[in-house]
Simulated assay, not measured.
Amino acid sequence: MGEWRTSRYSERENCVEVALGPAAKIRDTKDRTGGILEISTRSWDAFVIDLCSSNPRDLREV
């Protein structure tokens, strides 16, 4: 599994972290020992691409 990373645009303790590997694992920086959300790397890539697009979709419609 990859190393945990945070966004360079966020505060160090007020964000989420992601570790990329065979699956994308996501956790809250304020509760690192809490639960971890695991999704496919394909889903993570689609999320990031949509988030960075000039016209992101409303996630309630996905």
Rank of each mutant, 00 (worst) to 15 (best):
M1W: 00
M1E: 04
M1I: 01
M1D: 05
M1Y: 02
G2P: 04
G2F: 03
E3S: 14
E3W: 02
E3G: 01
W4E: 10
R5E: 12
R5Y: 12
R5I: 09
R5D: 01
T6V: 14
T6L: 08
T6N: 09
T6M: 06
S7I: 04
S7V: 06
S7E: 11
R8A: 15
R8S: 15
Y9E: 04
S10I: 01
S10R: 12
S10A: 14
S10E: 10
S10V: 02
E11Q: 15
E11L: 14
E11W: 08
E11V: 06
E11N: 15
E11Y: 02
E11D: 13
E11I: 06
E13G: 14
E13T: 12
E13K: 13
N14C: 10
N14V: 12
N14E: 05
N14W: 08
N14I: 05
C15Y: 06
C15E: 04
V16P: 11
E17G: 00
V18Q: 05
A19I: 00
A19R: 07
L20M: 08
L20F: 02
L20E: 00
L20Y: 02
G21D: 12
G21E: 09
P22I: 01
A23I: 03
A23S: 06
A23H: 11
A23C: 01
A24T: 02
A24E: 01
K25Y: 09
K25P: 00
I26H: 10
I26M: 11
I26G: 10
I26V: 15
R27I: 07
R27T: 08
R27P: 03
R27C: 06
D28F: 01
T29D: 11
T29M: 07
T29I: 08
K30V: 12
K30W: 03
D31N: 15
D31G: 10
T33E: 15
T33Q: 15
G34M: 08
G35L: 12
G35Y: 11
G35P: 15
G35S: 14
I36D: 05
I36S: 01
L37P: 10
L37R: 07
L37G: 11
L37W: 09
I39D: 06
S40L: 05
T41D: 02
T41L: 04
T41S: 08
T41H: 06
R42A: 12
R42D: 00
R42Q: 05
S43G: 04
S43Y: 02
S43A: 15
W44D: 03
D45A: 13
D45G: 11
A46N: 03
A46T: 04
A46M: 08
A46Q: 04
A46E: 02
F47T: 00
F47C: 05
V48C: 08
V48F: 07
V48P: 03
I49Y: 10
I49R: 12
I49T: 14
I49G: 07
D50N: 15
D50E: 01
L51G: 13
L51F: 08
L51M: 13
L51T: 07
L51S: 14
S53R: 04
S53Q: 10
S53N: 00
S54G: 14
N55F: 00
P56F: 03
R57E: 02
R57A: 13
R57G: 01
R57D: 00
D58I: 03
R60N: 14
R60Q: 13
R60H: 11
R60I: 05
E61Q: 14
E61L: 14
V62C: 10
V62H: 11
V62D: 10
